[in-house]
Amino acid sequence: MLNFILKRLLVSIFVVLGVTVVIFSLVHLSPGDPVRMMAGIDASDEDVEALREKLGMNDPLIVQYFRYLNDLIHLDLGQSIISNKDIADEIFFRFRNTAELAVMGMLISAVFGILIGTIAAVNRNRWLDKTLMSLSITGISLPSFLLALLLMLLFVSKLSLLPASGRSGSPFTAEGFRYIILPALTLGISGMASVARLTRSSVVSVLNEEFVMTLKAKGLQRKLILFKHVLRNASLPILTMIGIDFGYLLGGAVVTETIFAWPGIGKYAMDAINNNDFPAVQGAVLILSMMFMLINLVVDLLYGVLDPRVSLE
């Protein structure tokens, strides 16, 4: 297993390098001049050039790229063009917030998704199954901003139960929980729907296997069959989906974060893009790609743990 991890890490380094090249090029080639944007349309050309010089953006792109790589090796993500703040600090700060939201969203989608999918599978082809699966199509099709606004209209505008935006301390406190629950539900509901559908088909296919019939013939209780044997065997594809979904959530669901003013990394990246804050965009995307790769690695490892048939090479 150690071999496997090492090999994957090595490959990851190349992937990260590739990511830096792609992001660097994309960001510098997109329209909009961040220096002019900072200075203002009506700033004189001299002012703009002076600023550009000060920020080191007059050097040829290749020089800027290698300077960037050099900084990366020293774990320096640079400073935001707009705020002069250390990007690593800004990202770390917001990453915690996004992680909270992602974990919460993932828990909601995993727990309820598996629950619903299992119920549907066990009741397959009956009305409960059909209802749940139809609802799940709605859940998947509903765009996140619409879901967010609906939840906000219901729980905030109409019922005045919850706050509309912001974050107030750790979500493990009662106060903090009130702020995270709506954005987490927004993320969780669409995830829940996909997990439910996948769980259903996965559980159904395992239920059809011969060993289940054997277990029933042996007289094992239904609950035991379900939890101890069926779910475990059905879990692999579900796990992969949850893992990938989690990676995506960690990317900071930008729309949800923006609507609920959740101070996360998705919104940070979006603002950086709008302001043409190159170093910030590069930093954010880089961190996110690395997170994604890390999660994929963990999911693959878990595969090996959970399914002895899978050998990692």
Partner: peptide, 18 residues
């Protein structure tokens, strides 16, 4: 000053008294 980038959300906060 609270950062609320979405204007609809901000309007709802104003209505709610936040």
């Amino acid at each position: 000053f609270r950062l609320i980038p979405d204007s609809m959300t901000a309007l709802i906060e104003l209505e709610q008294g936040n």
